[in-house]
Simulated scan of single mutants.
Amino acid sequence: MTAPAIPQTAPPADLHAELLDCLQVNLAWLARAEYGVSPLVLGARLDFTPRDHGPGRLPTVEAATDAHVERTAQALGLSLTHRHTLPPGTGALPPGPGATYVIADAYHLPWVPYRGHSHMDHSFLLDRDPSGRAVVRDGYHNDTPYGPARPGTWTLTEEELAAALPDGAHVYGLTRAGVPQDAIEAVPATAAAVESYVRAYREHPDREQALAQLTLETWLLARTRRLHAARRATDANPPAVEEHLTAWGKLAEQTFLAHRRVQRGRPEPTGPLERLPALLHADARVFTAPTGQADPVTARAGTADTTSSDTHALRTAVAEEAAAVLRVPADELLAGRALTEIPGFGSFRMVDIVERIEERLDIEFDAADLVPENLHDLDGLCRITARAHRETP
């Protein structure tokens, strides 16, 4: 598989790929490239309508694939003309000129980090180059547990394309249908919907499964709210909106951390399920409030611990472990460089830092201390490390 020089198919500068999921982004690329439609129309409407999968199963805010594709296409002013299935292991391209929207299993796609790790539906655009070879365009932008996914264009031989589609693929025909759906609206979440949703995750007997799914849920919820904020913003978001988006991002981080803790047999941090309902109820208030008006729920969604710092030796050990994960000199962290300023810092690296500190110092952090407010800077890490060190027998 090679990366060709095809300037005319480079991702548009205003694709906003970091705000779109793996099914939306390539429909948006198609609509932007061929019809000039802004991808931000996909953030015009914000609502909370989780799918109920029946007794004993967890509800999800992620729509079924076909329904999600159809709704996304409609919002972009596109119409689905047909859908057909490519047979397993085919290297044949769909007939006709122009890019084709395709969905296949990410587990087999060689250009995404999910390859060999995770089964999920993933989209891409499939086209031909002048010599007839397959050209894949994929605008997906995300940091995953398996590495970063970034927009790009790749050329595949017939054999490579066949190997990437051992289970076949779904091909969608699309055409311009009319004006994109772009009426801005934030629909308040109902108390019943929020309570039912949170209760299902709180009471699910398999805690690892519940937190694994909730990690995906909070990531999707946080991303859709950033997309909605981007659609609303004419210049910069009001401070209250920025605070709210930050709180959603921290919730997604905290949920991932809780999942990793349970995976390792550690006590489950309760913070995610305590914060989630407050943020869901705050959505509509924050996005529709007059500019600059703070939302009291969002503003208090997590207050940092301000207990004293720790000894020089402990601080050095914490800095060394964080530096090893982030691949920077420990002296930079000891001199005051913020973890959040370092490229690559995020929920995955945050968890790695926590686990390395526990292993090096033979401690176990209190589940209540594992909130993002304590994990984004060296002072916070030192405070909870000192407390865990004192409380460890």
Results as ranks from 00 to 15, higher is better:
171 V>L: 07
214 L>Q: 08
46 L>I: 06
146 Y>F: 15
76 L>A: 12
339 L>W: 12
247 A>W: 01
186 A>Y: 12
214 L>N: 01
286 V>Y: 04
40 L>P: 09
319 A>W: 14
339 L>K: 04
53 H>E: 05
383 R>K: 02
221 L>W: 04
165 L>V: 06
308 S>T: 15
116 G>R: 00
90 T>F: 10
15 L>N: 02
121 D>S: 08
182 D>A: 14
354 V>F: 03
338 A>W: 13
258 A>H: 01
362 D>V: 13
333 L>Y: 08
135 V>D: 03
190 T>P: 05
108 H>P: 03
303 T>G: 08
187 V>C: 11
334 L>E: 15
356 R>L: 15
52 D>N: 09
112 V>Y: 05
376 H>K: 13
226 R>G: 05
210 A>Q: 12
196 S>G: 12
213 Q>R: 12
146 Y>V: 00
220 L>Q: 15
261 R>E: 14
349 R>K: 15
95 P>S: 12
150 R>F: 02
357 I>P: 08
213 Q>I: 02
70 E>R: 09
88 P>C: 07
121 D>Y: 04
184 I>E: 11
127 D>K: 09
172 Y>L: 04
62 E>T: 07
215 T>N: 10
60 T>R: 06
78 L>T: 09
261 R>P: 13
35 Y>W: 15
271 G>E: 12
338 A>I: 06
196 S>H: 07
339 L>P: 02
382 C>F: 06
339 L>V: 05
240 A>V: 03
41 V>A: 02
89 G>V: 06
2 T>G: 04
319 A>Y: 09
98 G>Q: 08
358 E>F: 15
206 D>E: 06
143 D>M: 06
56 G>K: 02
9 T>M: 10
339 L>M: 14
314 L>F: 02
7 P>F: 07
61 V>N: 08
67 A>M: 07
281 H>T: 14
128 R>N: 12
57 R>L: 11
313 A>W: 14
88 P>W: 02
5 A>P: 01
